[in-house]
Amino acid sequence: MRMSKRQGGFTLLETTAVIAIVGTLSALALPSYVDMMRSARVAKMEVAHDAVIKSAQVYHMKWMLAGSPARATVLDNVQMNESGYPTSAGILIAAGLADHYDTRVAGVIAVDPQHPNCRLVYAPDTGTSVINDADGSNC
């Protein structure tokens, strides 16, 4: 006697339906994911900007309390210039940004190496910084 064995598995129609559903969900979710990642990079840049501004102010006050030396000096392991603000290397230590940002170019703090236009530029002569891409369009 011959017994009929039925093979288990999915039919072509079922597999096609699942692929269509997954494709549709991916097409809807991908733009939201991209926008969310851009927003996260912009937020990270704003946090760095705030940290740089506050650190420059704090160390400028420390420099003034130290007697406003008219030469480059070091305060709490932070290199200071003769204007009383942290140098480009010093602001990374003062603001704690060296480990989580792309800081390979002096005075430029980028979110990461993959997004070099999403950055801020620090001016050590005045202790100010400007976000290069404030609206986040290139982040």
Results as ranks from 00 to 15, higher is better:
R2E: 15
M3F: 02
S4C: 11
S4V: 03
G8T: 13
L12Q: 06
E14I: 13
E14K: 02
T16F: 15
A17D: 07
A17Q: 09
V18Y: 14
V18C: 10
I19G: 08
I19P: 09
I21K: 01
V22S: 00
A27I: 08
L28V: 15
L28T: 09
L28G: 10
A29F: 04
A29M: 02
L30Q: 14
L30R: 09
P31S: 01
S32G: 06
Y33F: 12
Y33N: 12
Y33I: 04
Y33V: 10
D35R: 15
D35T: 12
M37W: 02
M37F: 02
R38D: 08
V42W: 03
K44M: 13
K44S: 11
K44A: 10
M45G: 02
V47L: 12
H49W: 03
D50N: 08
K54P: 12
A56D: 01
V58Q: 06
V58H: 13
K62E: 12
M64Y: 10
L65R: 12
A66N: 15
G67C: 15
S68G: 15
R71V: 14
A72E: 14
A72C: 14
T73P: 10
V74Y: 07
V74N: 12
L75Y: 08
L75C: 10
D76H: 04
D76N: 10
Q79A: 09
N81C: 03
S83Q: 12
S83I: 04
S83E: 01
Y85Q: 01
P86H: 00
S88N: 11
G90V: 02
I91C: 04
L92H: 04
I93L: 06
G96A: 06
D99C: 05
Y101N: 01
D102Q: 12
T103L: 15
V105F: 00
G107P: 07
G107H: 09
V108K: 14
I109T: 01
A110K: 02
P113C: 02
P116Y: 10
N117K: 14
R119N: 01
P124G: 11
D125N: 07
T126I: 00
G127I: 01
G127R: 00
S129L: 05
S129E: 06
I131W: 07
D135F: 04
S137D: 13
N138L: 06
N138D: 14
C139Q: 00
